[in-house]
Simulated scan of single mutants.
Amino acid sequence: MGLPRKSLVSLKATPYYHCVSRCVRRAFLCGRDERTGQCFEHRRQWIEDRLLELARVFALDVCAYAVMSNHYHVVLHVNAAQAAGWELHEVVERWHQLCKGSLLSQRFARNEILDAAELTQLAEVAEVWRARLTDISWFMRMLNESIAREANREDGCTGRFWEGRFKSQALLDERALATCLAYVDLNPIRAKMAEAPEASDHTSIRRRISAAKDGQQPEQLFPFIGNPREPMPAGLPFRLQDYLELVDWSGRCLREDKRGAIEEKLPPILDRLQIDPQHWLYLSRNFESRFKSLVGAAHSVRSTCERLGKRWAQGIRDCERYFPSPAAS
């Protein structure tokens, strides 16, 4: 039996989480069904649009995503500080973009005067909404439910569209984060849906590359802000240029005609993160299946398990092998 989602999320351990949601029976419900020839490709755009729309409502930043034929990946950053700074009016306004709210919140949104007792009651409810607006499970619920309703309406049927639970992995350190980001961005390359990252439809890497051509970063995505330093602004702790070079290099090595060959000139980000190139290419193919719910250096996984009250750390041996501590590398 899977553990409750709340027992696997610890913002003290990390604000970064990799989530995967799959269609029931792994059917081709979002792309093109090779068996019947029916095309559902337009649904991939539904998911991408809804994903980015919800990110503007929740206190969650989208770091990477890839919408595939029968599943999608998203790497989320929980921005608890942003949610903590919201005034009552903003919490209510954001929640109303998702749900109707309550009679009190609707009156408040219309600028009707509430007495002290009503304001107190609304403030208590709003704190529940504030917590939900930083909750990954609520984000995934709002995303998946809206897509399922639209797909069932289009098909003229009822029933499940997604599997019951989405998979989540906590990314405990920079190496786990960088590896997961690249794993997500390289999904279409591995699946032979695209030959290059810039040609990968419905992915964050294509959006980043398009913006980078104009010297920009896309507003819809959590920005790359460079290597760690003090003070550290909000953003991904890598240089954008280094990351794009890493994804391009990895994509070339993952192509069958390259047979995973290691070029002499390696992206500098691999040196900084102290990741073996052979390990990197292996994880670029197998990150999701190789690790369980906690990913990072072994000492980080163990300490997080203690904090979460878990008695064992699944996948700890793979963490020791692929993300060794600096002293052991």
Score class of each variant (00 low, 15 high):
153 R>W: 10
280 W>S: 04
297 A>V: 08
285 R>F: 05
195 E>N: 13
158 T>M: 06
189 I>E: 02
327 A>N: 12
49 D>P: 00
72 Y>R: 09
171 L>G: 02
62 V>A: 04
293 S>A: 13
81 A>T: 05
265 K>W: 04
234 A>Q: 13
257 D>V: 06
301 V>Q: 04
230 E>W: 12
134 T>A: 08
283 L>A: 09
18 H>V: 03
252 R>L: 14
303 S>Q: 15
245 E>I: 08
142 M>D: 11
137 S>H: 10
291 F>K: 01
75 V>T: 14
4 P>E: 12
133 L>G: 03
222 F>P: 01
92 V>C: 10
316 I>P: 02
74 V>Q: 02
200 S>K: 02
196 A>I: 01
127 E>Y: 04
80 A>G: 06
177 L>A: 03
121 Q>W: 00
222 F>T: 03
119 L>S: 09
149 R>Y: 11
73 H>V: 04
214 D>S: 13
258 K>N: 14
124 E>P: 00
111 N>S: 11
123 A>M: 05
164 G>P: 02
317 R>D: 15
230 E>S: 13
157 C>F: 00
158 T>G: 10
299 H>S: 10
45 Q>G: 14
28 F>R: 01
182 A>F: 07
90 E>Q: 12
44 R>N: 06
72 Y>E: 11
79 N>K: 06
108 F>Y: 15
37 G>N: 04
275 I>C: 12
314 Q>K: 13
140 M>E: 09
228 P>Q: 09
321 R>K: 14
104 L>G: 01
40 F>E: 01
174 E>I: 02
153 R>G: 09
133 L>K: 06
292 K>E: 10
180 C>S: 14
23 C>M: 01
194 A>E: 10
269 I>K: 01
95 W>V: 09
249 W>I: 03
130 R>L: 00
194 A>T: 13
103 L>D: 06
252 R>K: 15
296 G>N: 05
43 R>L: 04
28 F>P: 03
170 A>L: 08
61 D>G: 10
274 Q>I: 07
169 Q>H: 04
136 I>R: 05
306 E>A: 07
327 A>S: 13
127 E>K: 10
157 C>R: 15
102 S>L: 05
176 A>N: 03
19 C>W: 02
125 V>L: 14
36 T>R: 01
193 M>P: 00
167 K>V: 08
174 E>P: 02
70 N>K: 00
195 E>G: 15
17 Y>F: 12
141 R>H: 14
43 R>I: 02
253 C>F: 02
149 R>S: 08
84 A>R: 14
260 G>A: 12
84 A>N: 09
191 A>M: 11
59 A>G: 14
257 D>S: 10
14 T>L: 08
92 V>W: 01
71 H>N: 05
267 P>M: 07
134 T>C: 15
74 V>I: 07
112 E>R: 11
248 D>F: 06
214 D>M: 05
149 R>A: 12
290 R>V: 15
152 N>Y: 02
211 A>M: 10
70 N>L: 00
223 P>Q: 14
181 L>R: 03
280 W>A: 05
311 R>Y: 07
176 A>Y: 04
169 Q>G: 02
243 Y>R: 06
108 F>R: 08
27 A>L: 06
184 V>I: 13
5 R>P: 02
315 G>H: 06
239 R>K: 12
183 Y>M: 13
